[in-house]
Design a protein around this nucleic acid. Sequence first.
DNA 1: GCGACGATCATCT
DNA 2: GATGATCGTCGCG
Length: 209
Amino acid sequence: MSEDRKLGDSYFQNPDVVHLAADLLGKNLYTLIDGELCSGIIVETEAYRGPEDTGSHAYGGRCTTRNASMYKAGGIIYMYVCYGIHDMLNIVTGEEGSSHAILIRAAQPSHGIDIMRERRQVFNDDRRLCKGPGSLARAFGLNKQHDGESLSATLVWIEDSGWKPQAGEVLSAPRVGLNIGEPFRSIRWRFYLSNNPYVSVKSKDAVPL
DNA sequence: GCGACGATCATCT
DNA sequence: GATGATCGTCGCG
């Protein structure tokens, strides 16, 4: 933890959500919830690009009470409930009025692992703690109540570790779980670190970024 | 290790 | 009333 490594609004307000989704790999995600500090290295993300992306909750300019956070300025989180059970963590990006977001799908735990095990009730395989977006949010103590929280506050934030992936280490692949038509069904807007055991889904269609 | 399946409810129509 | 940016379990072999 160090204040000078914390990513600020200017980072998240970059207009290119696809670039940012890949760039977040290797960054450290932190939460300080119920007095418990947790952190992990982001290893898998997905980009959702504004009104033209049929996979996005903001497709066609849709704006409801659920997804209103997507239209705020970059640098806050968008949380929503999926399948009535799982809370999903998204990073809102771009300028105010745009509706881009990045789903954080998996992380490699580095701090607060005991708390993560307890929250997840998983005690025999740490690789599973933050594998998949629903698991990750639960391990970090995040839920829909945190929708709209700022990444420049002290509850949830992201830091640049200084780590950079090697050439070819970042793979791009189709997004997971979307029942939509082409071209967005197959577009490679999911990014993950190759050979990382904490990634939730590996794809045959993956290609180096 | 992998495919099938049911759980479960907020949100939208 | 239908749907879903998922997950854990079960059967398999």
